[in-house]
């Protein structure tokens, strides 16, 4: 299973980003082999419809869950149709490393 995360930077110490469409980087974590991939968000600086473009971008990477600090209003119907689960992290001081540890523990 592949899980996407919205991140503020391209390191494991980066924090979870509080927006999905305009986050700085996407982190894709593969639970089957533990692979971690950092992708810069192409929709970071766009004027409008950042969320929709980000969904288009991320759905081609076959993720089944997305973790972010928050999602925009128009994102949920799109992700529901694509059967992608949204997880909103309440504590926005959590780092990517911390979340991956949580996911590893949850799986085992």
């Amino acid at each position: 299973m592949r899980i996407a995360m919205a991140s503020t930077g391209n390191s494991l110490e980066a924090k979870i980003d509080t927006s999905f469409g305009r986050c700085a980087w996407f982190v894709i974590y593969d639970t089957s082999n533990g692979g971690i991939e950092f992708i810069p968000n192409p929709t970071k600086g766009v004027e409008d419809h950042a969320g929709q473009s980000a969904v288009e971008f991320i759905k081609e990477r076959n993720v089944s869950k997305i973790i972010s600090g928050d999602f925009g209003l128009k994102i949920k119907p799109m992700l529901d149709s694509l059967n992608i689960q949204m997880i909103v992290v309440n504590d926005n001081t959590l780092t990517i490393h911390h979340i991956i540890q949580l996911l590893k523990k949850e799986e085992s």
Binding site: K76, Q85, N90, D91
Partner: peptide
């Protein structure tokens, strides 16, 4: 437990576990 919010697109699961902390 961890304070996160999540949705469950697959409604066949009646009692979901937290996807983050289990």
């Amino acid at each position: 437990a961890c304070g996160c919010y999540f949705n469950q697109p697959d409604k066949n699961i009646a009692n979901p576990l937290c996807p983050l902390c289990g």
